[in-house]
Nucleic acid binder design. Structure first.
Lengths: 182, 182, 182, 182
DNA sequence: CATGAATGAGACTTCATTCAT
DNA sequence: TATGAATGAAGTCTCATTCAT
C-alpha cells in the first residue's frame, strides 16, 4: 500500500497549508491560498475534503486534538483551581497563536462540530466540574462559556500587542471564588 | 444652496443605511445592500465615501459619537468605580447590539481612526484615570484595553445566548481593586 | 428615464447573445460565451438574470412568443387539418433552426415554465381540439405530445442533413385520420 | 499469458461500468463514476481507452452488437413489413432504455463510427431494402433515417411518460405504404 | 449631483487527463 | 500493468468599484 503513504502525506501537507493560511488570514482565506502554501494543486484539496467547510472543520479537529493534551494535564493537577486556570491559560495561548480558530470555532454553531472538538469541550467540562466541587469557581459557568471568554485572547486586532495574557489574568480573577481560610 | 442641503441629507441617509446593513450582516454586507437600505443609488455612496472602508470608518465614527454620551454620564458620576463600570456596561451593550462594530473596529488598527473614535478613546481614558486615582481599578489598564475586553461581549457567536452580561460582570470583578474600608 | 432605455437595450443584447450562443452550442454554452456574443461583461448578464436557468427560460419565453404567431395563423385557417399541420410544420421549422430549444424545452419539466411557453402550449391545444372535433386527427394526441414529436426535427445531429422536413411529413401522415368522402 | 486474460477481463468490466453509468447518467457521467461501477481504478480505463470519447464509442459498439440480433430476427421474418416494423420497435425499446445512447449516437457524426454500429446500419439497410422491394415502405427512406426517427423514442424528457410507444406507432403508420389487395 | 448599469477579478467547485507509485 | 492521487482549466456566481446617462 505504498500509494496510501503518499496520499496520507499529502493530506498532511494540505492540513498544514490550511493551518498556516487560516491562521494568517482567517477562515476566508481562499482555497487557492491554502493550495499554494501546501505546494499542491487546488484539485488535491478537493480530493481530500469535499468542500471548504470540511477543511475548516478538519483544521479545528486537528487543533482540538492538540489541546486535549492540556486537558489531561489539568486533570492531573492536584489543586482544582490550578488545573482550571492552567487549562484556561494554555487554551488562550493556543488560540492566540491561531487566528483561524476565531472563525473555525464559529462553525461549531452551524454544523456538527469536529469530533475532537466535542471531546475537548467535554474534557473542559470535567475540569470545570472539579473546580465547582471544590467551590473555587464562580457558579454558573460551564464549558460552553470558555470560548466566549477566550475571545478576549484571540480577538485578532489586539493579539499583536501581547496584552492578552493580562486580559486572561483579569478574567481568571473574575472567575475565582476566594475560599475563606476556614 | 439647496443642493448642498440635499447632499448633506443624502449623506445622512447613506450612513443610516450603512448602520442598518452592517449591524445586521456585519462588515461584509454588500455595498448594494447599504444602498438599498438607504434608498439611494450605489453611486451616491461612492460620491460621499471613497471606498467601502471609508464607509465603515464613518459608521464607526457615528457610533462613537453616540457613545460619547456615556462618557459624559460616567464623568458626572460621583463614584469613580460606578462611573467606570457604568461606562463599561454601556459600551458592552452598545457593541453587543451592533454586529457591524465587531469588524469595523478592527479597521482602527490598519487605518487612521475616525475622529470621534479617538475622542471616545480619550474620554474613556479620562474615566479610567479617575478610577486609577481613586485606586479602585487594577493598575496597568488603559483605554486601549477596553475594546479588547469588550470582545467578550461582541463576539458574535455567543451574543445570541445572552450570556455576555455575565461575562461583563466577570471582567468587572477582575478589574476591580477592593479598597479596604480603612 | 434615460437610464432605463440603455438598460433595456442591453437586456436585449444579452438575450440576443443568449439566443445565438444557445442556438449554436445548446443549453450548456458557457455564460461567458453568451457575454462575448452580447459584447457585454459577464456581470451584466447576472444583473439581468439571477442565474443561468433564468436566462434559458427567458430565451424560451422569447422564442415562444414568436411561435404564438403561428398559432394565430393556424386558428385563422378554415380547414382544421390545414391549421394543425401548418402549425406543426412551422414549429418544426422554428425549432430546427434553434438548437438551444432542444435543451431549453427540457427545463419546462423541472421548473415553472416561461409564461409565453404556457400560452403556446395552450394555443396549440386549441388547434388540436379543433382538429379532433373535425375528426381528422388521431385520437389521444394532445399538445404535450407535440414537442416530443418535434424531437424528430430538432434532434441536432440530423438537422444538418435537411432531412427533417421529410420526417415531419411522415409524422403528419401518421397523425392524420382519413375522413371517408361520405 | 495469464496477464492478457486478466487484461481482457478488465476491459470487459470497464465496458460494463461504462454501460451502467452512461445509461443512468447520460454521456456526461464522470469517468470516475465509470471506474467506480467497474470496480477498477480510473487509470485502468485510460489504459484501455485513449479518452472518454473512445469509451463512448466502445459502448455504442457494444450496444450495436446487441441490436444486431434484432436485425437477424427481422430478416428471418417472412413478411417484410413485419420484419421492418419489428426491428423499428425493438430498436426504439432498446434506445429508450439506455439514456446514454442519446448522446453516444451523436458522436457518430463527428468521429469514425464504431464497427458494429456500421454493421448495424448495414443490416438495417438490408431490412429496409426488402421492405422497399415489397413496396410496403415509403420510398426515399434509408437506414440513415432510422436513428433520427427514433429520436422520438429516446428524447429523454418524454420517455418517462411512457408515451414513446405511441409515437413509434404514429411513425410506423406514416412510413407504411398500403398495398392494395390486388 | 444622483443614478444604477456595467465591469471583471476572484471565489468555490467539478472533472478529464496525466503520472508517480 | 493497475492504481488512484494530483493537476488545472473551465464553469457558475458575487461584489467592490467605475462611468455613461
Amino acid at each position: 500500500m505504498a500509494l496510501r503513504a503518499d496520499a496520507v502525506r499529502n493530506r498532511e501537507r494540505v492540513l498544514e497549508g490550511a493551518r498556516s493560511a487560516f491562521a494568517d488570514l482567517g477562515a476566508d482565506a481562499p482555497v487557492e491560498e491554502v493550495a499554494r502554501r501546501a505546494g499542491v494543486g487546488i484539485g488535491t484539496i478537493y480530493r481530500h475534503f469535499p468542500d471548504k467547510e470540511a477543511l475548516l472543520l478538519a483544521v479545528l479537529d486537528h487543533q482540538s486534538q492538540l489541546c486535549l493534551a492540556w486537558v489531561e494535564a489539568a486533570l492531573a493537577e492536584d489543586d482544582p483551581w490550578a488545573g482550571f486556570s492552567g487549562l484556561f491559560r494554555a487554551l488562550a495561548q493556543e488560540f492566540a497563536e491561531d487566528r483561524f480558530l476565531i472563525d473555525a470555532a464559529r462553525l461549531r454553531r452551524r454544523t456538527d462540530a469536529a469530533e475532537s472538538y466535542l471531546r475537548l469541550v467535554q474534557g473542559t467540562q470535567d475540569v470545570i466540574d472539579r473546580a465547582h466541587l471544590a467551590g473555587v469557581l464562580r457558579p454558573g459557568i460551564d464549558a460552553d462559556d470558555v470560548p466566549a471568554l477566550l475571545a478576549v485572547a484571540w480577538e485578532p486586532s489586539w493579539v499583536e500587542d501581547e496584552r492578552w495574557p493580562t486580559y486572561v489574568e483579569i478574567i481568571l480573577d473574575g472567575l475565582r471564588v476566594d475560599v475563606p481560610l476556614r
